[in-house]
Design a protein around this nucleic acid. Structure first.
Length: 431
DNA sequence: TCTGGGGTCCTAGGACCC
DNA sequence: TCTGGGGTCCTAGGACCC
C-alpha cells in the first residue's frame, strides 16, 4: 500500500500574518524585512510581480516599492510564531500523523483517505485554516514528499493565475504520460534539494527540467548531487525515501548570531554583543533542558567589502553547562583570540554543540558529586528566576552587567507592526 | 550609507592507531 | 631500515532548507 503525503504551505506567510491584522495591506505590494531591515524575506504576490526577489537587499528595492505605493515592514517573529501555532493546531485535527517542517509548512499523512476524497479533504482543510486564521494555504498531495513539494508548487502558481485548482493539486495515480508532462515542465532549479549551485551544474550538462533528471543513471546522480540528491530523484520516480518525521531528533546545536546596526570597531562593544548572544543561547538551552559541551565564537567584517575578515574558534566546556556566566567567560576568551584592532566588524555570533539533557550529563571525574549537585541547584535557581522575570516583563529586564546598556550595535527594526497576539499592551483595539 | 538568522546533511582529507 | 593497508575519528567546507 503506497503512502500518501499532503504538503500544506502558507502563502507568503509573514505577509499573510500582517494582513490578517491589518486589512489595509490587502491588494498592495507588501514585503517583510529580515533583522536589521536588511532584505526582503517575504513578499506579497503584488510585490513579487514588481520583480522583488527573495532575499533582495532593501536599499535596492526601496524605490520600486515606494513608487508602487507598497509597504515594507520589519519582521515580527512573536506574531508569526503565534499564528503558526494556530495553523498547526488546525492541521493536526485533520490527520493521524503530521510533521511540522518549518514555521509555515507541514507534511500531513493522508494514508487511509480514499483516493477519490484526497482533494476534497484538502480543500476542507484549506477553507478551515482560512476561516480561523485568515491565512491562505496551498496544498500538494502525492506519493512521496518530494512530489508533494512539486504538487504544492503547481497549486500555488495556479492560484496566482487561473485558479483552476482552488489551491489544491494532487499527482496521486496520474498516468505515466501525465507525470512525464508535469515533470518536464518543472525546472530543475525549483526542486526541493536543488539550490543555485546544483542548478547551474545540472544546466551545464543540459539538464533543465525534473524529467530529464529522472532519466539519468543513479551513479551519475549520486556523484553530482550526493546520496541526498539520489534520494530526491528516486522520490520523483515515486519511490518513497523520506518518511514523516513526527518526533524530530534532538537538536545538535544552538546558535545566536546577529549583524550589527552599525559597524563595531572596539573590543568592548564586541564583548557586549557576544555576551548578549550567550545569554540568548543560555536561555534557549534551559528552555529545552539541555547543557552544552562545546562553544564556538565567530566574528566577521562586511563580506561585501574588500579585506573581508572572518575568523572563528571554539572551546570545550568540560563541565557541561547552560549557566549563562559559564558561557560568557569562555566566549570572551575566544573573542580575545579573534579580535584584530582596526577592523570594522559587521557581525558576530556564538554556537554551542554536543548537547545533552541536563540529567544525563556525566559528572567529571575526581570531584565531589554532592558539592557539584549543590552548586548546580544554586545556578539553576538563579537562572530560573531570571528567565521567569524576563518572560513576564520582556527580554533583558534582568540581565548580566556584561551585556552593556543601550548598545550601539543593537539591531534596527524601525517598521515593526504590533505584537498583537503576545503582548497585552499591543493588543489590537476593536472599534 | 544600506546586503538575515538558524539550522541540517554529506564528503574529503588529515591524524592516528594497529 | 624500509614499507602497507585498513579502520576510526575529527574537522573543515560545501551544499541545501526555510
Amino acid at each position: 500500500m503506497p503512502k500518501t503525503f499532503a504538503l500544506v504551505d502558507c502563502n507568503n506567510f509573514y505577509v499573510s500574518c500582517e494582513r490578517a491584522f491589518n486589512p489595509k495591506l490587502e491588494g498592495i505590494p507588501v514585503i517583510v524585512l529580515s533583522n536589521n531591515d536588511g532584505c526582503a524575506v517575504a513578499r506579497s504576490n503584488e510585490a513579487k510581480a514588481l520583480g522583488i526577489g527573495m532575499g533582495e537587499p532593501y536599499f535596492k528595492i526601496k524605490e520600486i516599492l515606494e513608487k508602487a505605493d507598497g509597504v515594507a515592514l520589519s519582521s515580527n517573529y512573536a506574531l508569526y510564531g503565534d499564528m503558526s501555532a494556530r495553523v498547526m493546531q488546525i492541521l493536526s485535527e485533520y490527520c493521524e500523523g503530521m510533521e511540522v517542517y518549518s514555521i509555515d509548512e507541514a507534511f500531513l499523512s493522508f494514508d487511509g483517505i480514499p483516493e477519490n476524497e484526497l482533494v476534497k479533504v484538502a480543500k476542507q482543510i484549506r477553507a478551515k485554516v482560512l476561516q480561523c486564521t485568515g491565512i491562505p494555504v496551498s496544498i500538494g498531495i502525492a506519493q512521496t514528499k518530494t512530489l508533494a513539494k512539486v504538487a504544492n508548487e503547481i497549486a500555488k502558481s495556479d492560484s496566482k493565475k487561473t485558479n483552476r485548482f482552488g489551491g489544491v493539486y494532487s499527482t496521486v495515480s496520474r498516468p505515466v504520460e501525465e507525470m512525464k508532462y508535469i515533470l518536464s515542465h518543472y525546472e530543475v532549479g525549483d526542486l526541493w534539494g536543488v539550490g543555485r549551485k546544483y542548478a547551474k551544474k545540472l544546466n551545464k550538462y543540459g539538464i533543465k527540467n525534473a524529467y530529464q533528471l529522472t532519466e539519468q543513471n543513479d551513479e551519475w546522480i549520486k556523484k553530482q548531487l550526493t546520496i541526498q540528491g539520489l534520494r530526491m530523484v528516486n522520490e520523483l520516480r515515486e519511490i518513497q525515501c523520506h518518511n514523516l518525521v513526527i518526533q524530530p531528533d534532538p537538536k545538535k546545536g544552538i546558535a545566536s548570531t546577529r549583524s550589527f546596526g552599525k559597524p563595531v570597531t572596539n573590543l568592548k562593544e564586541l564583548q557586549e554583543a557576544v555576551s548578549s548572544y550567550c545569554s540568548i543561547v543560555g536561555e534557549k538551552l534551559r528552555k529545552e533542558g539541555l547543557v552544552a559541551s562545546h562553544l564556538y565564537v565567530f566574528v566577521m567584517t562586511n563580506r561585501f567589502q574588500v579585506g573581508y575578515y572572518y575568523s572563528s574558534t571554539g572551546v570545550t566546556l568540560y563541565d557541561r553547562t547552560n549557566y549563562t556566566p559559564e558561557l560568557i567567560n569562555p566566549a570572551l576568551k575566544c573573542l580575545e583570540k579573534l579580535f584584530r584592532p582596526g577592523l570594522e566588524y559587521k557581525k558576530a555570533g556564538i554556537m554551542v554543540t554536543d548537547l545533552s539533557l541536563v540529567g544525563e550529563a556525566p559528572f567529571s571525574l575526581f570531584e565531589d558529586k554532592q558539592e557539584i549537585e549543590v552548586m548546580r541547584k544554586k545556578k539553576q535557581t538563579i537562572m530560573e528566576s531570571m528567565d521567569n522575570t524576563n518572560k513576564k516583563y520582556g527580554r533583558n529586564t534582568l540581565k548580566l552587567a556584561s551585556l552593556g546598556f543601550n548598545p550601539a550595535w543593537k539591531i534596527q527594526s524601525n517598521m515593526r507592526s504590533g505584537r498583537y497576539t503576545t503582548v497585552w499592551e499591543e493588543l489590537l483595539g476593536v472599534r
